[in-house]
Amino acid sequence: MNHPKILLIDDSRATRSVVAKMLSGLQCEIVEAANGALGLDQAHLHLPGLIVLDMTMPVMDGVETLERLKADPATSAIPVIMLSANSNAEEMEQMKARGAAHYVTKTQKPKLILDYAMELLKLEPKPVAEAA
């Protein structure tokens, strides 16, 4: 059985590590990229089921990366969760208008990303007996 892939695009290895740890309970393959340009390459290579995309990065930021993902027929249908340190309601609306499925600030509970990932990948929570 092929497990869905999740692509994490963030210049911070520490943040990628925290998000990957949070998603490790899902039966998914995690792929990582350190900026938007590398992330676009990985998106085309792996065609992941979900992308978690940081807003502020060197080389290519999250806004441009999201625009390119949504403009490309090969990647336009991949759901994207935007990740930002910048808690801003206007920015959230702008990112959703550009096609992001969700916008999560890094200071929110990390479990929120897990909940959104399960929703977007249409995964069911593990039964309690199985989880234990």
Binding site: T15, T56, A85, S87, T107
Partner: peptide
């Protein structure tokens, strides 16, 4: 990254 997150939350 910690400084980044703290700055974002203070700014908000």
């Amino acid at each position: 990254e910690l400084a980044n997150m703290i700055a974002g939350k203070i700014k908000a």
